Simulated assay, not measured.
Amino acid sequence: MNDNQEKNKICQIYWCLFGGILGGVVLIIGVPYVWNALQQNISHSVSPSTKSSPVENSQSNNTSAEEIGKPSPKEAVPNYYSNINNRQYQAGWNQLSASFQNNTKVHPEGYTSYLNWWTTVDRVDIEEVNLIEISAETATVDVRLKYLMKTGKVAPQYLRLFLVWDGATNSWLIDRTKLLTN
């Protein structure tokens, strides 16, 4: 081999190594970015009720929604958080009772306070829904959630939702909430 052929061979080896290193860097940096973008798009397009199957336990007082001729209060939970995840904040607000909307401890500035809170949340994942009690006009549901904040923080919550039946809309409305401990 002459000097030119040897230099060409060395250059080819360097270019192959450089290309391999560059390709590796692109894979290392690009794959997680693409994966995260895909996951975000999927999470925004799928409601919590279809994204995962929350464990649905029933510990009610032997009365069922069918027996009182109404939809299950457990359905109100994924419906509400689906509106939140789809950025349908007004629809979510409408799923609160008037007394909860007017509760100045929770919403000091009404809908503005509600909107200010929910716009900090990227999405809500429902992990578990338990029907605790149901009557003709009220229901109690425990729900285990994860708030995925826009800051990247994950905030698990265990809540008791007190629901009231609204005959005008034929739906369960959230009347108040209580933070539970495990």
Rank of each mutant, 00 (worst) to 15 (best):
T138G: 06
D166W: 01
A37F: 12
S60Q: 03
N94Q: 14
V154D: 03
K105V: 06
Q5L: 13
R160Y: 00
E66L: 13
S53V: 10
M1C: 09
L173M: 08
G110S: 11
I126L: 01
S43R: 01
N79M: 08
A65K: 02
W118M: 06
H44Q: 14
V34I: 15
Q95C: 09
E67I: 08
Y14H: 10
Q90V: 11
L161P: 04
Y14Q: 09
S171W: 02
L17A: 15
L96W: 00
W165V: 02
G69V: 12
N86Y: 10
R144L: 13
L163F: 05
A91L: 07
I21F: 15
S43C: 07
M1A: 13
L180F: 00
Q95P: 07
I13N: 09
V46H: 06
T177Q: 02
S99Y: 09
L115C: 07
P78Q: 06
T119R: 13
E56G: 02
L145F: 10
Q5I: 11
N8P: 04
Q95D: 14
H44G: 08
L17V: 15
M149D: 07
P78V: 12
L159G: 00
P71Y: 05
S135F: 11
R176T: 07
V129Y: 00
S64T: 15
H44I: 06
P71D: 08
P73T: 08
K9S: 15
K153I: 12
D166L: 01
A139I: 01
T104C: 06
Y114A: 09
E67G: 10
T140H: 00
T120P: 00
L131G: 01
I10V: 15
Y33E: 08
R144K: 15
P32N: 12
V26F: 14
Q88G: 06
K51L: 12
H44P: 00
Q101D: 07
F18M: 10
P78A: 10
L161Y: 02
W35P: 01
W93M: 09
Y114G: 02
V46S: 04
K146E: 10
K105A: 13
L180I: 01
S99K: 15
T138C: 07
E128V: 00
N182R: 03
I134M: 03
T169F: 06
N8S: 13
N83M: 10
Q40F: 07
L96T: 06
T140Y: 00
K9A: 15
S171Y: 03
I68T: 11
D125H: 02
Y81P: 08
S58C: 09
F100H: 12
V55K: 04
E109C: 04
Q90W: 07
V25M: 14
L161A: 05
A98I: 13
T151E: 12
P54W: 00
K51M: 09
K178P: 04
V164E: 02
N103R: 06
I10C: 10
T63H: 05
S64M: 11
P78W: 12
V106Y: 05
D122M: 04
G167V: 05
S45M: 10
K178Y: 06
E56Q: 11
N86Q: 14
I84A: 03
I21G: 11
V141L: 14
K153W: 05
E66P: 06
G23A: 14
I132G: 02
D175V: 05
V46C: 05
